[in-house]
Write a protein that binds this DNA or RNA. Structure first.
Length: 589
DNA sequence: GCCGTTTTCGGCCCGACTGTTTTCAGTCG
């Protein structure tokens, strides 16, 4: 079952897509897109709201509010049904082909009756397309190429891979004498979990040599477009990289512009317009005489619009502009705030490094404390036993004198299908800290899965729920659970939820972090490192936590050890032996 | 379709590149 808000988001987005294809008013299309995004980020269930309550949500007016209530009362939206009758679903698929937008998709459908990607491919092969006015041979070739990319590319590129490519490109371009400065922008700078393409920005008074160096990079497989200020290429791994070269004086405005998101920029530009200004990638200008106001730094651009500088990870039009205007931007958690890792492994189970190797690496990061949390016994393939675990604890205690870090002996428990975990209460009490995660039976029905996670939260010995959705980016979907119920249980019981930093997990994801935070949940940003090098994954988890608006106060492993120990002890005292937590009211923000 | 510190009507972000044209529409970000 889909969450009601997600169902509404999908319907509103579909409405926007169909309006675009039927040559709708662009502003109306945008209104539906804004509404879809707002509902997606809304922290509460909208299915029981009436029209008046819905209209209090930004970007929801009378018309959309009525469509939402219509959907929840009748199960359908009449206006959407009419559009669906007009436009086959296959035409909406056509728009996903790069270089084919809604206008020409509609022309293909009305003039040639093309209503699927397969039919378009046939029309190109048979030469039918070239008879169509406005569709020349180059267009045909581009569309074929786009179809090929669409069918072979499996979604977007994970953040880590895109970052590696971007950093390599920046090293090369920075070596070009004409290149004064160079960095990445776009969804990468916003630390999105996956990116569709890489945006690289360079400052130079002499763009040509920079563009030349870019197109000659060894990783470039194909040049898609080449102009004086913008060049797009595709790498051998099918990743599109756009390079923009701007004059140094425009650096700040360009960086702001190309960092996005598109939705954030639209809001910022609207503010500029209301002040009689115009913002482009070249700078902030006065509308009346075209004179330049500022453009050298991002800070100046935001300041002239009476906004505090907004961290890139917040630039998603999820309330950050209002916060910047009123001085209420959060002080986001950073890598430097993290005092210790609370979820790590060694070669006692499936890790690749020994206990002392992991400890030495952690010490090198300057942590104040560090938890070793090898897998518990029910994950039978790891062959864990009570004796091995106790032996590890003794070794850890003996190593205490060899390090400045406080060493915590923990474990990663398995949340069984019924919500129980490995070991009895006595054995569990012997650990300093316990993470509990789902490692099996991912396909349980929603009700059972919700109960499973809630029961784990209610266990007085479980301190952190590890990778709560168990999704793997581009590989495995999240488990199906009522996460608002889980968040409520986590907040009420004093159970932290993990932001797992592994780049193919990033779990919780940012949208769920935002929702969990509204319930008053605390978080732990951990690496789940199985090797020394994986301790560096922390940057991805911190980026995700920032996208979820988390401050150091929200994240238990930024706290001093004493406070962290109190957090663990408080749950145990509160929940044992009765096991019934007091309910706390959700936090309002 | 939404919105409001000039507005309940009349606005709504801005520019680059491509391909097909003959001066520009469509697409993208």
């Amino acid at each position: 079952m889909v969450r009601p808000d997600e169902a509404v988001e999908a319907l509103l987005q579909e409405f926007a897509d169909l309006l675009a294809i039927t040559d709708g008013d662009p502003y109306k299309i945008r209104a539906y897109e804004n509404a879809a995004r707002t509902i997606a980020g809304y922290p509460a269930d909208v299915s029981h709201l009436d029209v008046e309550s819905l209209r209090e949500i930004p970007n929801i007016g009378r018309s959309i509010a009525e469509k939402i209530t219509e959907y929840f009362t009748t199960g359908r939206i009449e206006a959407l049904e009419r559009l669906r009758e007009e436009i086959p679903a296959g035409v909406r698929e056509l728009v996903k082909i790069p270089t084919l937008g809604p206008r020409r998709a509609m022309v293909l459908y009305t003039d040639l009756g093309i209503a699927s990607v397969a039919q378009l491919e046939d029309a190109i092969q048979s030469g039918l397309l070239e008879e169509q006015h406005g569709f020349g041979p180059k267009t045909a070739a581009n569309l074929l190429h786009g179809i090929e990319l669409l069918t072979q590319s499996k979604g977007r590129i994970p953040l880590r891979d895109a970052l590696a490519t971007a950093e390599e490109i920046i090293v090369h371009l920075s070596a070009v004498p004409a290149c004064m400065t160079c960095t990445y922008a776009g969804s990468l700078r916003r630390m999105c979990e996956t990116v569709g393409d890489v945006d690289v920005l360079a400052a130079s008074t002499e763009p040509e040599p920079v563009m030349d160096a870019f197109t000659r990079l060894p990783i470039v497989a194909e040049v898609i477009a080449r102009g004086p200020t913008k060049t797009s290429v595709r790498t051998a791994t099918s990743l599109q990289v756009d390079l923009r070269v701007v004059p140094p004086a425009s650096w700040g405005a360009a960086l702001q512009y190309f960092t996005g998101s598109k939705e954030h920029n639209i809001r910022v530009r609207e503010i500029a317009v209301r002040k009689g200004l115009k913002l482009s990638e070249y700078g902030l200008f006065r509308v009346d005489d075209d004179s330049l106001v500022v453009s050298e730094t991002e800070e100046e651009v935001y300041a002239k619009l009476e906004l505090a500088w907004i961290p890139p990870t917040l630039r998603e039009d999820r309330g950050e502009i209002e916060a910047a205007r009123t001085g209420r931007l959060p002080r986001l958690v950073t890598v430097a705030d993290i005092q210790g890792d609370l979820h790590t492994h060694t070669d006692l189970t499936d890790g690749a490094a020994t206990l002392s190797e992991m400890l030495a690496a952690a010490q090198g990061r300057g942590y104040h404390y560090y938890a070793v949390t090898d897998h518990a016994k029910n994950l039978t393939m790891q062959r864990m036993t009570d004796e091995k675990m106790l032996d590890q604890r003794s070794r850890l205690r003996m190593l205490a004198d060899t390090t400045d870090m406080e060493l915590l002996h923990g474990t990663e428990l398995n949340i069984e299908p019924d919500g129980e975990v490995d070991w009895d209460a006595d054995f569990l009490a012997g650990f300093d800290l316990r993470v509990a995660s789902i490692h099996s039976r991912f396909g349980q029905p929603r009700k059972a899965m919700t109960r499973r996670l809630v029961r784990a939260c209610e266990n007085p010995h479980v301190n952190i729920i590890g990778h709560p959705t168990t999704r793997r980016i581009n590989q495995r979907p999240p488990v199906n659970a009522d996460f608002d119920a889980v968040f409520e249980a986590a907040a009420a019981t004093g159970t932290a939820l993990e932001v797992n930093s592994s780049p193919d997990r990033l779990d919780l994801p940012d949208d769920l972090i935002l929702r969990a935070r509204h319930h008053g949940v605390k978080f732990a940003v951990n690496t789940d490192a199985h090797a020394v090098a994986q301790l560096d994954f922390l940057r991805y988890g911190v980026g995700t936590a920032q996208r979820g608006w988390l401050t150091p106060d929200d994240v238990i492993n930024t706290w001093p050890l004493e406070k962290l120990r109190e957090f663990v002890a408080a749950k145990q005292e509160r929940l044992t032996p009765a096991g019934v937590p007091h309910r706390r009211a959700p936090r309002r923000t």
